[in-house]
Write a protein that binds this DNA or RNA. Structure first.
Lengths: 139, 139
DNA sequence: CTAAATGCAAACGGTTTGCAATGCT
DNA sequence: AGCATTGCAAACCGTTTGCATTTAG
């Protein structure tokens, strides 16, 4: 646990979210596990520490985090939603072998966006699929 | 109807798919309506022409088209899947007002993809959200 | 004490599945 | 006849909802 309770409280306050035990735990989990987890993964991990935890609360908390810009959705082609604590602009790569989702930087200064001249762009998602370096090595 | 039955049969054959009435109709629909439709939209439209049509068959057919590279999935953040008959590399923009999904060209010759040096990239999806030109004008 | 946060169970909705009915050669 | 295609109904599963219970200031 690298991000302590005080840090989490402060971070939540900065985003106008009232800190609660669950919110703090989920925030800490997201900071310490940069794996773009699903609700299921977060729940399974945290229910050991908080035995009364419900999935509904995990859903509620992530929805709250989304609305307040603490997390962003990763748009994989999976049916389960994945959440990313890093809200900066970057790409996601999902390995079809191991299922891991990697972050990567987009270095193109500017994506030429033909046909979108007069459009108001609010969000850009970059999502790749393939086989990661480590799965390629171990075959 | 700009794409006739003979064209559709030929196209299906080229992709190793045995033509059937439903497959031909769905292919024609996709060619004539470049709106990245959902299963629901395809079903609602075609059930008038094919009263016995079931959603299952629409699902089956699209799955078959996906496997054989006739369509690609559009990875919107919606829960319903959208299908694109244009399998070339291009971006998708979804307007949050009218819900339309627009195609756009990516003109950057090459996206700099840091961290993916030794990864095998099989698919790239570019997805934007915002407000389209026409919804911006009419307000 | 009061309002917010949490949890339970049921409902929801898109998709999938098993299998029977139908169609095609 | 024999195999592929289609359709129906139920199951599936991630998510949402309504509401009762608990928690915190």
């Amino acid at each position: 646990m690298n991000y302590d309770v005080d840090w989490a409280k402060e971070h939540l306050n900065e985003h106008s979210i009232k800190p609660s035990t669950i919110r703090i735990k989920i925030l800490q989990y997201l900071m310490d596990n940069r794996i773009h987890p699903t609700v299921e993964e977060i729940y399974k991990k945290l229910v050991y520490e908080i035995p009364t935890l419900s999935k509904t609360s995990v859903y509620n908390t992530l929805e709250l985090f989304l609305e307040n810009g603490i997390v962003q959705l990763v748009n994989t082609n999976e049916k389960e939603s994945r959440y990313d604590i890093d809200t900066s602009f970057h790409g996601h790569f999902k390995c079809e072998k191991c299922g891991k989702v990697y972050d990567f930087n987009i270095t193109a200064e500017e994506l030429g966006e033909d046909n979108l001249k007069d459009f108001c762009i609010k969000d850009r998602k970059i999502y790749y699929e393939g086989i990661c370096k480590y799965c390629l090595e171990n075959r």
